[in-house]
């Protein structure tokens, strides 16, 4: 039987919702146990949140001052040690999980399954390659530990009605001092988080400038949406990098995705393919975005967005 260790992602004392998505993928393996490991300098509040995730058997906390920041070089040896006795180690496919999980896998002497979309069996998974233009089925040797990152856009967050016990875990692991945290510059936003938002409005190069992006923000706020951007908009300096949606940015699956002034390069489309409904607003009727849009509107975004706001009252 399988026993799965899920690595909790957290920031500022709060559990990241991606953890509950990774727990959903773990449940799909139908394991005997799903344990969540919280590595932090102060794990108690985070562990209490993790204990509520449905399907979690227990939460393990590793409280060490060195765990104050999520540095892969510090966390990986601890996770690798804690992984003894588990058949699977899962982490969300966020920048946190992508940084940490391969380091854990290498310490365990195994390759990793990146971006699990579906679980076909305890050792069989589907994942995207070539920017999502092909989906491969991979089989992991049954004798090896499965280390995987979970494509969060493919999995719903497990509900939080559980009540798992929390246990402190003492790990006798020497930690390196060669990697040190300096600072984190966070974009301030009171809008819904891009990766968890039910609605997302994204702007591209067609928006034209940083100032013009205000029309995107205003419309997004009107409908309670998160705001994303294409690579072109980020490269042009209209918005910060953490708003980029696509193969190398965030992969999202909101119920409604509205692409404004985005042509729809392959690399962008891979980030939104699993959205429920895709709306494209673009002045170029030949733009590739219209090939995957459920609803398309050809026209000038600066005319259409105010009209949409007016129509919404």
């Amino acid at each position: 039987m399988s026993k799965i260790l899920v690595i909790a992602e957290h920031l500022g004392g709060k559990l990241n919702a991606a953890t509950a998505r990774a727990a959903s993928a773990a449940a799909a393996v139908k394991p005997e146990a799903i344990d969540v490991i919280v590595l932090s300098d102060a794990p108690d509040a985070i562990a209490a949140e993790a204990a509520k995730i449905d399907g979690v058997s227990k939460v393990l906390t590793v409280a060490r001052a060195e765990n104050a920041h999520a540095l892969a070089a510090i966390l990986a040896p601890q996770v690798a040690k804690a992984a003894a006795g588990y058949t699977h180690v899962f982490a969300p496919s966020t920048t946190f999980g992508k940084d940490l999980a391969p380091r854990v896998a290498a310490l365990l002497g195994v390759s990793q399954v990146s971006d699990v979309m579906t679980v076909e069996g305890p050792h069989s998974f589907k994942r995207p390659i070539y920017a999502g233009n092909a989906i491969v089925t991979v089989e992991v040797d049954a004798a090896s530990t499965v280390v995987a990152t979970i494509r969060t856009a493919s999995w719903p967050a497990a509900a939080s009605t559980g009540n798992a016990p929390v246990e402190a875990l003492a790990l006798d692991v020497a930690l390196p001092s060669h990697t040190r945290f300096v600072n984190l510059q966070q974009g301030k936003s009171d809008r819904p988080d891009l990766q968890g938002a039910a609605k997302v409005v994204s702007g591209g190069r067609g928006v034209g400038s940083k100032e013009n992006f205000e029309v995107i923000y205003r419309f997004a706020d009107k409908i309670g949406a998160g705001v994303g951007a294409s690579r072109a908009a980020v490269d042009a300096g209209y918005v910060p990098n953490e708003m980029q949606v696509g193969q190398t940015g965030k992969i999202i699956a909101p119920e409604l995705y509205i692409a404004v002034g985005i042509s729809g390069a392959i690399q962008h489309l891979t980030g939104i393919k699993d959205a429920g409904t895709i709306v494209a607003i673009n002045k170029d009727g030949e733009a590739p975005i219209f090939e995957i849009a459920d609803i398309g509107l050809v026209g000038d975004l600066f005319k259409i967005l105010p009209e949409l706001e007016a129509a919404l009252g």
């Binding site: 540095l71 040190r180 600072n183 984190l184 510059q185 966070q186 974009g187 953490e242």
Partner: peptide, 9 residues
């Protein structure tokens, strides 16, 4: 470039 913004190490 991390999900939350820019981290320096």
């Amino acid at each position: 470039e991390v999900d939350a913004g820019l981290e320096t190490i």
